[in-house]
Design a protein around this nucleic acid. Structure first.
Lengths: 210, 210
DNA sequence: AAGTATTTTAATCATTTGATTAAAAAGATA
DNA sequence: TATCTTTTTAATCAAATGATTAAAATACTT
């Protein structure tokens, strides 16, 4: 019989193998370009097992996508809402953590952004509480800095765009950047390491510009 | 008989209709998620005509991709290699032109970046002369500014990543950004207009940081 | 207008692909 | 061990999809 909706055993080896393979292939090729056979092969299992454990390609994808977003968002929201760290310190931590994460899983941003474009309604709702980021301690601290005249009065989204842009874009565009800069993977990674220290400095310099 | 390899008439209406539809659909959904039937429907033509004029989905895609990259690169390379404009002026022009382009064709970056990920070798060669950007007048001017001590000595790619990141990322991530910022399209576009003036200022401030 | 070439259409093919099924294999239970 | 349950496999299905074909419609040439 087929597995019940309530998971029988948490770490069932085959189920995990399939999920790991699915994560890898979906992240690399996206939903549309992924064949369930690709996943089965990557997992080293019979194709039918995929449907046996996950019912359909779409259901499997939804699980992977949810987990991916979850892992991506919860960690950052904790940082953003930490009352104890200063605004500047938060920038350092976020930039550092994100770059570390992206060095290990460089396919995630393009994966998320592509699927978000293909399916804005569904996925945006998964971020749930839309305004949760804009009401974070981080943004409050940003507003306070403006009131205190310490940084220029700009829309917080400008700031988000700049920071995310500088952190994420290099990974999204890495094939192009490595090509035009004639960089090997190692040299690229070195630049990313540098950016962990540089971006916070740059961001702070920008914030002072009126 | 089928059309010869040397185009018979440049603006053949049907051929153009197909290409326009293909450009629109490919840009929006990417290669894998696009069905030739989608293109035919969008163009209002019989499916067989697509193969009659372009032989295959792949050949049609190659044409669209080449034209897209071409239009994207040639315009920018002209700006980058203009001997008459200063370094700072070039930044203004590039940022302004790119943002204007992206407001009109916001799907292009994610399209290019996604297909580049799916097919790095092929597409990177299409950018041809790899080092063409790194040997542009723009980069030479950048190096001179460093020598003159006017800007901090960083790898030019950092600078490219920052500028492109700030310009391109908002469009790549617009569904997410509009959602978390609770912005309508019009408000989003207003932010983009502001960025045409802001980004050059920010970039210049960053460049001064040691 | 007649004849020829080009363009367009409807029908159809062949392959790919997500999914199912029935049976075999492996595992658990008594 | 015998019986039942769960997992795995091979074979197959049905729908989707890229592509082709033969005929019809249109345009062009003389």
């Amino acid at each position: 019989m087929k597995p019940t909706k309530t998971k029988p055993a948490a770490d069932h080896s085959t189920e995990e193998k399939i999920k790991n393979a699915a994560r890898s292939v979906f992240h690399k090729k996206g939903y549309a370009a992924t064949r369930t056979r690709d996943i089965a092969e990557e997992a080293g299992i019979n194709l039918a097992l995929l449907n046996y454990y996950f019912r359909s390609k779409e259901k499997l994808f939804d699980i992977i996508m949810t987990e991916t977003m979850q892992g991506f968002l919860t960690s950052i929201m904790e940082i953003l809402n930490d009352e104890k760290t200063t605004f500047e310190k938060k920038i350092e931590i976020i930039v550092g953590n994100y770059i570390d994460l992206l060095i290990e899983q460089p396919d995630i941003p393009l994966f998320v952004l592509s699927e978000l474009r293909a399916n804005p309604e569904t996925l945006v709702s998964r971020i749930s509480n839309k305004k949760v980021l804009m009401k974070s301690v981080f943004i409050m601290q940003f507003q306070q800095q403006i009131k205190a005249g310490k940084i220029a009065p700009i829309h917080p989204l400008h700031f988000i765009m700049n920071m995310l842009g500088m952190v994420v874009f290099p990974f999204v565009g890495s094939p192009m950047l490595k090509s035009i800069g004639d960089l090997k993977q190692k040299e690229f990674d070195e630049l990313m390491q540098q950016r962990k220290k540089l971006i916070p400095k740059w961001v702070n310099a920008m914030l002072k510009i009126k």
